[in-house]
Computed example of a mutant assay.
Amino acid sequence: MPSRRTLLGLLAGLPFLGGLAAYAAERRPFYTGPLSDHFDGTRFFDPHGSPPKAFTDLLRWQFGGDRRASWPASWPGPGADRPPPRVDDDSLRLSYVGHASVMLQTRGLNILFDPVWSERVSPVSFAGPKRVNAPGIAFEDLPKIDLVLVSHGHYDHLDVSTLSRLHAAHAPRVITPLGQDLVMKGHDPAIRAEAHDWGARLEVGNGVAVHLAPMRHWSARGLFDRNKALWAAFVLEMAAGHVYHIGDTGYGDGHHFREARRRFGGFRLAILPIGAYEPRWFMRDQHMNPDEAVQVMIDSGARRALAHHWGTVQLTNEGIEEPRDALVQALAARAIDRDRFRALRPGEVWSIGPDEA
């Protein structure tokens, strides 16, 4: 007999399922536009990817006996960061908020990736995966936020409540892939969301441009809206070296990451997911493991990498510290200094100077 926790996870907690409580999402307008090599007129797809698993596979995972590690109810970070108002030079100041949320300060811009300050990543507030540590920056301690980049629509990346709070406090520009703006504006029409396709290049000021690039993933918020909005990686183009951010991705054959290197000539920093990867038979096509993340660092030509998507909310079967431990092992196996690919805890900061090689 499945536990109450497992049933609630099925109904509300899995960001890629959304749950019955997200029925209202099915009544919102969906993206319409011309056909392309990754849009068939109704749904998006990755020509180099794999379709998401079927519902029967989800049931097999949940009820088939795959061992699920037990996480602590509380695993607090070392303390909250209080960022400066700005970082005006080419330094990169990275503050780990938790799970997929990272703040980057550089060239006078304050940028948030996939911001989530809510307690749960779920379509409902009373059930679903709950964070085991507070955000690494208290919301009230955020400096003026200029730009928000939201990679896709899963609940652990697109948090409409947080986006609404950010708009009320900072009114940032929000850049997201096609169709995700409709999710945001359906919740709060005031959110300054703009949606773009893979290949778009957008000037955001202070000598910085944002590109949207393919990643091997998919998107949904309910039971019937699978892939009706796009997903994307982001490249921040800067004279001192580019930053490559991936919200979620499988590795596949590595095509997208080698292509990113070919197109952009390598990266000063990659921000890469390392968690939510077990069991591999179910997760392989959508979430890479730490060993694959190190390979992405190599494939993309990134000199450094910051890990995210671990240690804050339990989405899958691995233990809370397993991604970090596996990352250390993967780096050692390739003789890469572990300081070049760091896994921070919420509230920790990594500052990279403008002249660091």
Rank of each mutant, 00 (worst) to 15 (best):
G186L: 05
A213V: 10
G250T: 05
A193T: 05
Q286G: 11
G136T: 08
T176Q: 12
L182T: 02
L212I: 01
I274C: 15
F45S: 06
F44V: 04
S351N: 14
V132Q: 12
G222Y: 13
P354Y: 00
P72C: 03
Y96M: 04
K53D: 04
A293K: 15
I271S: 10
W71G: 04
S3A: 00
S161H: 13
E237Q: 09
P29I: 05
I274L: 11
A307K: 01
S95I: 03
A239E: 13
D299L: 08
Y155K: 14
L112E: 01
P52M: 09
G266R: 03
W231A: 06
G41T: 03
G153N: 13
E26N: 07
P115K: 02
A138H: 04
I145L: 02
H99V: 01
F126Y: 14
P51Q: 01
S70F: 13
D81E: 14
W117E: 00
W281F: 02
R201V: 11
I274T: 10
E203K: 07
H38A: 15
L14Q: 06
V132T: 14
L20Y: 08
W75V: 11
G207M: 08
R120T: 01
A134V: 12
G186F: 14
G77I: 14
V296T: 05
R131G: 00
H48W: 11
E278G: 02
E140L: 08
I320V: 15
L327G: 10
H187L: 02
E292D: 14
P29H: 12
T162Q: 10
A239T: 11
P83S: 00
L163A: 09
D37I: 02
F16V: 08
P72V: 02
V296Y: 04
H308E: 09
H196F: 01
W350L: 09
W350K: 02
R28V: 01
G311C: 03
P34L: 12
A209M: 09
G41H: 00
Q295W: 12
F39I: 01
D146N: 10
G265F: 13
R201S: 15
E321D: 06
V210Q: 09
I336C: 15
Q62A: 11
P177T: 03
P29Y: 05
V313K: 09
L166H: 08
F126G: 07
A190T: 08
S161P: 06
S36N: 01
I175N: 06
L327I: 04
G222W: 13
A260E: 04
G77P: 11
M1P: 09
